[in-house]
């Protein structure tokens, strides 16, 4: 097992190397550059050259690449051309926000998706089944930004149940040692801040979790339908076991194997930020920050953020594979 983890982590090196080269070349192939973006339409050749010299953009790309790699190894990704702050600082601000939002979306998707999928399978062919299947089709089909705007309009603007944007009411005076606002409130004993952060999370989490929810419902339902007809479930019935034992030990433990894979893949996607959701709810996370960085040709930010996201994606997938080995003994070889 340890060897397996080590091998997979070692794989990160070529992945990150290849990605960084691609990213570097691709970013510089985009029309315009950070100097143009900063200076706007009235940029003169002189001012552009001055900015480029400031950021070292006038050097050949392999020299720039070498500089980038040698500092990136020390976790220094340079400064943002837009905010002029270190990229690592921007990461420390935005990643916890996205992480918190992703966790909330996952709790929503898994917490509702697995029970709903299970009962849909249990009540196969009834109205509950039909509603959850067609509902999950709708969940996948509705564009995220549309859903986000509808949620915001109905529940924030019209009903006023939830705040419209941001992560925290600016009138609340709260400390943020970890950057995870809900956790911060609990740590500092500021329960009001925690509750406020949760209220800010509800609508974005629903918007972001809608697609994972729909996928989890469908996979759980299909998987449970498969498993309840397995011979070992009949064996369990023949033993006269209580229905809850059969459900938990014999049906769900087998039915959830494919669901875990799906959850892992979705988690990887969620952690890389949600540009649409974060934009609609003005949620200061990774997705929104990257979107802005792209329009500003903010090379340093894009390079750093995308590499870290790629690394996270690999690690999350590794965690999924490891957990798979824990819940399915047949995979526990090597």
């Amino acid at each position: 097992m340890l060897k397996f983890v080590a091998r997979r982590l070692l794989l990160l090196v070529p992945i990150l190397f290849g990605l960084s080269v691609l990213l570097f070349v691709w970013l510089r192939a985009l029309p315009g550059g950070p100097a143009q973006a900063l200076l706007g339409e009235r940029a003169t050749a002189d001012s552009v050259a001055r900015i480029e010299a400031l950021y070292g953009l006038n050097e050949p790309w392999y020299v720039q690449y070498w500089k980038f790699v040698s500092s990136a190894i020390q976790l220094d990704f340079g400064n943002s051309a837009r905010t002029n702050r270190p990229v690592t600082e921007e990461m420390a601000r935005t990643f916890p926000a996205t992480f918190e939002l992703a966790i909330a979306a996952l709790i929503f998707a898994v917490g509702i998706g697995i029970p709903l999928g299970y009962y849909a399978a249990k009540k196969y062919g009834t109205w509950l089944d039909n509603v959850s299947v067609s509902g999950s089709l709708l969940g996948v089909a509705v564009p995220v930004f549309f859903l986000a705007y509808i949620l915001k309009y109905v529940f924030s603007v019209q009903l006023g149940w939830f705040p419209t944007q941001g992560r925290q009411d600016p009138r609340i005076d709260a400390d943020h040692p970890t950057g995870l606002y809900v956790l911060d409130g609990l740590i500092t004993g500021n329960l009001e801040a925690s509750w406020d952060a949760i209220m800010h999370l509800v609508l974005p989490a629903i918007a972001l979790g809608a697609i994972p929810l729909a996928i989890i419902v469908r996979i759980t339902r299909a998987s449970v339908l498969d498993v309840v007809h397995e011979d070992y479930v009949r064996t369990a019935e023949a033993k006269g076991l209580w229905e809850r034992t059969i459900t938990r030990r014999h049906v769900l433990r087998n039915a959830l194997l494919p669901v875990v894979t799906v959850i892992g893949l979705q988690a990887g996607l969620l952690f890389s930020g949600a540009i649409l959701t974060e934009t609609v709810f003005a949620f200061d996370g990774v997705g929104r920050f990257i979107a802005e960085a792209i329009s500003n040709r903010d090379y340093a930010v894009l390079q750093g953020f995308i590499l870290v996201i790629a690394a996270m994606y690999v690690v999350v997938n590794l965690l999924v594979d490891v957990s798979y080995g824990l819940i399915d003994p047949r995979v526990r070889v090597r």
Partner: peptide, 12 residues
């Protein structure tokens, strides 16, 4: 039952 290969729960 007939098939001992499939009549036991594989993950328990």
């Amino acid at each position: 039952f007939q098939d001992p290969m499939s009549s036991l729960n594989p993950v328990v």
